[in-house]
Amino acid sequence: MKLYEIFLRAKSGLSHKHVGSLHATDSQMALQNARDLYTRREEGESIWVVDSSQIVSSNPSDKDAYFAPAEDKIYRHPSFYEIDKEVKNI
């Protein structure tokens, strides 16, 4: 059996969120098993199943190279800019 990762959308307007995994022999079975396992308490209204082996993920050892460089780019955040309190709606 293959390992599938399961993503649920709790309600329309939200994005799909990873909730766990399960085993199935094919994608249809994965979808049904996901319905039977992960939506027993109305947790979702849409399901994605993804063959785990198809997921490409970043490597924890690249964490610094990937994510640290964004740290000092504070000018990307609105709080970086000082504007007089008198100015409204900006």
């Binding site: 059996m1 085993h23 199935a24 079975m29 049904q32 098993n33 039977d36 396992l37 027993r40």
Partner: peptide, 11 residues
């Protein structure tokens, strides 16, 4: 016959 199917049958 396997855990996933056990749950599904019970549903």
């Amino acid at each position: 016959p396997f855990l996933e199917e056990d749950l599904a049958l019970t549903n």
